[in-house]
Design a protein around this nucleic acid. Structure first.
Lengths: 176, 176
DNA sequence: TATAACATGTAACAAGTTACATGATTTC
DNA sequence: GAAATCATGTAACTTGTTACATGTTATA
């Protein structure tokens, strides 16, 4: 449902057609959502069908222009409901990476260390990317979201560094 | 693919039939995987079809007993490959909760605080549950996974506490 | 003999992705 | 007039869930 929330939120800010929404997501929310174009179009259609949005064959400048969607009263309600649910929820699903951790004994320590080091550099890169996201300003929501993302990445990184260290020591002990 | 890794890992530890695997997941991995029974059966079948496991209509004690699956040579390879991939990967997908954060300006601060407080108590409960997971001992993999889970939960919680605080102060300023 | 536990599945659905189809308008 | 960009979709596929169907053996 978070894709629906995202699109409703974008419509709330401004009536738009699918292409613009996709463009915005791709250019500005690339690291927030990986929603695909076809998905956005499908959701817009569904929102219209369920009365959360209205589509009108509108005109935009002198471009061809197709279906411009606007959020409805009912859609605003839906938006707030989804928002409340999202803010209250604490995702309990375990990330895929954790499953592999459970089995790490089945690989030679040397290999494990190589893998985890690769993981570490990916995290550092991601972290850098988040740190370079410019302050958003208009409303603190986006900035808060980014600050959370950074915090989680840091925790991820710190744990990894400690674990790599631990495994290295373990390996040294084993070789004696 | 992490469900496949999980099942291969369980088969590697011991040849089993689907029911047992499902039982084990439900009883011991409830907070690690929410894989459903039908899914496990389907994956077992697929593993057999692709040569990663062999099924034999085996007997277990004096129970009816159906298809006992064993991991094959090829399956061991697959397992290690998936494991390496999993250990090297750093999941970049943004959790649903983050999306809602982006739009938090659209709700009265009072409501936001109520929602986030609800979220906080859910996290505290989850954290407690993880802390009460007994040390596993046999191989450090599981323990490491749990320690990571705890660390991530703590980061999540700490950020939330700070943010709730920040929003409260914000609300006070606004009301002056 | 009813019911709980054992054991395996199928059919329908849901959400999303991929790859492709289509066509109009700008711009070179 | 070719290519880039604007604009919207469809069809097939993937992964997983839900709800149901089926049958056996142990147990109360």
């Amino acid at each position: 449902m978070e894709r629906e929330l995202l699109i409703l939120g974008l419509l709330k800010a401004q009536s738009q057609h699918g292409y613009k929404i996709n463009e915005f997501i791709e250019k500005n929310l690339g690291r927030v959502s990986n929603m695909k174009k076809a998905t956005a179009y499908a959701i817009l259609k569904r929102l219209a069908k369920e009365g959360y949005a209205e589509s009108s064959p509108g005109r935009e400048g002198n471009r061809p222009a197709r279906f411009v969607y606007s959020i409805t009263e009912k859609g605003e309600m839906r938006f707030k409901q989804l928002l409340r649910e999202g803010l209250s929820s604490a995702d309990e699903t375990i990330p895929a990476e954790e499953i592999s951790l459970m089995f790490l004994d089945h690989l030679p320590v040397r290999d494990v260390l190589a893998c985890l080091t690769a993981r570490l550099s990916k995290i550092e890169r991601t972290l850098d990317a988040y740190r370079n996201v410019p302050k958003h300003g208009n409303g603190m929501g986006v900035d808060l979201a980014v600050s959370r993302r950074i915090r989680m990445c840091e925790a991820n990184r710190d744990w990894l560094i400690e674990t790599i260290d631990f495994l290295k020591k373990q390996a040294e002990l084993d070789s004696n």
